[in-house]
Amino acid sequence: MNNDRRAFLKFGLAGAAVVGGLSQLLKISPHEFNEGLTRKLFGARREAPTFPRDRAREPRANGNVGLDEELTDWSLKIEAPGLPARSMSLEEVKSLPRVEMTTELMCVEGWSEVVHWSGTPLRHIAPPQAPEYVSLTTPDKSYFVGLDLESALHPQTLLAWEMNGQPLTSEHGAPLRLVIPVKYGIKNIKRIGTIQFTAQRPADYWANKGYDWYAAL
């Protein structure tokens, strides 16, 4: 057998091994692999960069699931294991320490926009020994978001009631929405009805449709 033949044979065998290895690789869940690695490497430890206020623009109003119903008597319901369920009026939420920030909202579809937000960090309503996950749902339960506790308690994760200095409009999530710069836009749930602190990894609207549950930036 001449050199060329031997080399082609070797090449063929190596190629088959690579294809075999890749098919094994395709068996692992890429979402789980990426989440495991990226949580260890980066987590949500650092703060998102902030921008000068005058860079802020109105973002697209993508996503209207859960915004259909006419809102009459809104209140924020908060649930945590071992604690009685409680509810807060918008005035009570607004009486918590106010934070303003200008951050970049990034959509998984590719666009991004710098937006100025006013609200209060979600951690102000968290119980002291909060379990590992947080679930947020719209009042009609049709949109829902699951968060890891680290991202939920991040200082820039806000329950926001103002966008670019104006009260939220309905299409942007009035009366209260989540702003979480360490996650893609899909996690920035509009019109929050219930916030539940939970030990089980909560369902997530877009994760149910095959998107990455972790969705971190």
């Binding site: 692992i28 890429p30 979402h31 990426n34 998984v108 877009w206 449709k209 095959g210 998107y211 990455d212």
Partner: peptide, 12 residues
């Protein structure tokens, strides 16, 4: 609805 799956393989 497979955009994020494609992204995920990209990141893997």
């Amino acid at each position: 609805f497979r955009l994020a799956e494609g992204m995920s393989y990209h990141f893997l």
